[in-house]
């Protein structure tokens, strides 16, 4: 098994504008997704939503600035760390990850164990 990070990049505005019922629907879709990870043979290692990019602080060569690393329309809004057999399985799982206002990026975790 290998580990993959599923990075969720989405527009933030729809999340700021949505009402409680819509918010609950999004949450439910994530709960369903977490169930689907193991149904598809993967394992959930970790997963969290992030606070909005307005709360981000960037540090470059010790200079601290307000704001995210790059200003883009779609920002990193959350992540899942999963275990999967290979890239195909990871992609099969990631295709189900809710990201109605953007998309997800799948990145393999680099193995530093040297084995």
């Amino acid at each position: 098994m290998a580990e993959y990070m599923i990075l969720i990049y989405e527009q933030e505005k729809p999340y700021q504008d949505m009402d409680a019922a819509e918010g609950r629907q999004i949450l439910d879709s994530h709960m369903r997704f977490i169930g689907q990870i193991s149904e598809l043979g993967g394992t959930l290692v970790a997963g969290n939503p992030l606070e909005s990019s307005a709360t981000a602080t960037t540090i470059r060569s010790d200079v601290v600035t307000d704001g995210p690393f790059t200003e883009t329309k779609e920002v990193l809004g959350g992540y899942y760390l999963i275990q999967a057999r290979d890239l195909d399985q990871a992609l099969e799982i990631a295709k189900l990850c809710p990201a109605p206002y953007g998309g997800v990026e799948v990145r393999p975790i680099r193995d530093l164990s040297g084995g």
């Binding site: 290998a2 290979d86 890239l87 195909d88 393999p108 680099r110």
Partner: peptide, 14 residues
């Protein structure tokens, strides 16, 4: 190798 793209023939569905 790093992303572990499997060295295999796709399954019928794919």
């Amino acid at each position: 190798s790093a992303a572990r793209i499997a060295y295999r023939v796709p399954r019928p569905g794919e």
